[in-house]
């Protein structure tokens, strides 16, 4: 197991006047993991993200970033925010500057980097998200998909080790969703640790190596997608829909159309390969 990059112990958080949003959440995340965070609306996913980013201050519990305990002081919190970036769900809530370049530079500028370094990072992030042509445009005249790309470039420019995406596919058309998945692949190749909250179980099933299931402020399951989806009790408690391919696979096996080889195909290519295999 790789070294732990983010460790949360017994984290609790309550919004003022509301019921408890997080109840004793503990999780240990290793560097380079691909994690999907799933669970119904209001299960505590976004609250969890804001807590581990130091934006919300937990009522109880400890956070360790790269083995160091994160205190309540400004320096620790700034280190945490430097290391963990969040791509927010609603791009309009994140975009602040009046040009795309200014917007992407906001994070690096706050890191107090020298100007040349900021410029280099902005150029790199814009190139990464294929946004060079938008450099001097106004974000408010960009389309939804373009805004999403801008917000991702924002975080890439900060060179965070951990990147959290809060429901990134929610507002995207299929083409932009494919582009997003390519970007996620590139980020994984660079060794970034990714946490993605999503309601798209097909995506979670094919992309994630680990699933965190939130229900009612608690993590009720933590494991590989196969094990989580195999547990009906958890699936029902968290209101998760079974991924299509898993459903098809299991139906075929239960009807005796194919034997269970334990392949669990995650995308169409793997599925076809498995079909060829069982047919032979």
């Amino acid at each position: 197991m790789a070294e732990s990059i983010l460790k949360v112990q017994n984290l609790s958080y309550q919004y003022s006047g509301e019921n408890q949003a997080l109840k004793h959440v503990s999780v240990d995340i290793a560097a380079g993991e691909r994690i999907c965070v799933v669970g119904s609306n209001g299960a505590g996913k976004s609250t969890f993200f804001l807590n581990v980013n130091g934006v919300l201050t937990p009522d109880a519990g400890e956070i360790y970033f790269k083995g160091h305990h994160v205190g309540r002081n400004k320096k620790d919190l700034n280190d945490l925010r430097r290391g963990i970036g969040i791509v927010f769900q609603d791009a309009d809530n994140q975009i602040i500057a009046s040009t795309v370049m200014g917007e992407v530079s906001f994070g690096p500028m706050n890191l107090k980097l020298p100007k040349a370094e900021v410029q280099a990072r902005v150029d790199e992030a814009l190139d990464y998200m294929n946004l060079e042509a938008f450099k001097n445009r106004a974000p408010h005249y960009c389309s939804g998909g373009e805004k999403k790309r801008i917000t991702i470039a924002d975080i890439i420019a900060m060179h965070s080790e951990v990147i959290i995406f809060d429901e990134p596919t929610a507002a995207l058309d299929p083409l932009n969703a494919v582009i997003l998945e390519e970007v996620l692949g590139k980020l994984v190749d660079q060794g970034k640790t990714l946490l993605i909250s999503t309601h798209d179980m097909d995506f979670a099933y094919r992309w994630a190596k680990r699933l965190l299931v939130f229900a009612d402020g608690e993590i009720i399951a933590d494991g590989t997608p196969e094990t989580v989806f195999a547990d009906d009790a958890i699936r029902i408690k968290a209101n998760l829909k079974k991924p299509m391919l898993l459903d098809v696979y299991e139906s075929m096996v239960s009807r005796g159309l194919a034997q269970d080889t334990g392949a669990y195909p995650k995308n169409i290519l793997q599925f076809e390969k498995w079909l060829d295999q069982v047919k032979a």
């Binding site: 130091g54 934006v55 925010r81 970036g85 927010f88 994140q94």
Partner: peptide, 11 residues
């Protein structure tokens, strides 16, 4: 929410 997003980027 805007302020949260700014803070998360080190404002």
């Amino acid at each position: 929410q805007f302020y949260d997003a700014m803070e998360s980027r080190g404002y």
